[in-house]
Design a binder for these strands. Structure first.
Lengths: 187, 187
DNA sequence: ACTTATATATACAGGTCTGTATATGGATTT
DNA sequence: AAATCCATATACAGACCTGTATATATAAGT
């Protein structure tokens, strides 16, 4: 991938999170990225295309990072679920944390027919599915139910952390997750 | 309050939730409300003022509805916390549910210096504080901690329900809340 | 040296947005 | 009946937005 294209993606990701998607014009993006609109529209057919690609790469980066962390630090399948919020905490509290893309995007594009909303919704579903697969590997009966509960905690904590950095929400989310996991394991 | 002013508030509340705040122009609001821009700017100094008032009335309505429900249906303080998610479920699944204002607003106005963001953040804090007071009345030790966890579940569920109506997220949030409350009560 | 690809600089068309200015229509009050 | 208030209708200024058109520079490959 061209360095300019990835530069635009990085800058857009940052600006979308810190200023909002609709409030960030393409002029601002190219100015910060140190290029021009002509170049941006060479790599992206429209602003909507840019938004979709920002969401896609952001979600891929997160999913890759998370599953790599889980696979390299745990051996038994049952441990992964327990360690999940450890790494989520590490991710949320890292200095370059910029929030979860699909949470903001779905708020700014509430229309269900919007491609941006549809992609956000799909990414949320995928993440829940991933947690559910971890729960299934850990021999938990209602894997989907637990996955939904954990994803609620996750999205709520990210929301809180986006709202106010250093709120400590993720710490209490981690505690709550442990209680819910332990509760679901015994049944 | 003038009927026209309240009509504008009702219409704006609905449009902000269904189309997004920044994507809804004042022209659209007055057209749906059946009035003109001149009237809108008679009652609201600016669009930002309108947004702030929509948030304020929406939050007041919710808080009033919720505490009235809790006060009229429960006697013992310890019951209120248990019944909390019952009524939240009733609210979320009601046909005129339009989401929680401050959750969307904070996503669309991420800049912490923005008055809209500040009000959203304050409303989130107030709601958490209310849950904490319920927990304190129920003799729970770490009332603030439990309140934070419950608010994460709440905001996550509302987020999920905003994303996809009838997702059933609130049902699992209710179950999770019961587990967390019971766990916090015994210690 | 010549061509080709890539990025820049700049301007602009067409649309939408907020907020205001001006003039007019009714209704109520005095 | 006259004056006052309230809402309407319409137009517009100024700013911002996306996306494109045109012309120029720069670098690399043949």
């Amino acid at each position: 991938m061209s360095t300019l294209k990835s530069k635009i993606l990085v800058v857009a990701t940052d600006l979308f999170q810190t200023r909002g998607i609709n409030s960030t014009g393409v002029d601002t993006i190219v100015a910060v990225a140190g290029t021009t609109k002509m170049t941006l529209y060479k790599y992206f057919r429209s602003k909507e295309d840019l938004i979709l690609e920002v969401l896609t790469t952001g979600h891929q980066d997160f999913q890759t990072w998370l599953s790599d962390k889980l696979n390299s630090n745990t051996k038994k399948p049952s441990e992964k679920l327990q360690k999940l919020f450890e790494f989520i905490e590490e991710w949320v509290t890292s200095p370059n944390f910029r929030g979860m893309g699909f949470i903001k995007a779905s708020a700014e594009f509430p229309n269900e027919e919007s491609p941006v909303h549809q992609l956000s919704s799909e990414q949320s579903r995928q993440f829940r599915q991933y947690i559910s697969s971890l729960a299934t590997e850990a021999n938990i009966q209602d894997a989907d139910g637990l996955a939904l509960q954990l994803s609620l905690l996750f999205e709520g904590a990210v929301q809180a952390e986006q709202m106010k950095r250093g709120s400590g929400a993720i710490k209490y989310a981690k505690k709550a997750a442990k209680i819910l996991i332990d509760g679901a394991s015994t049944h």
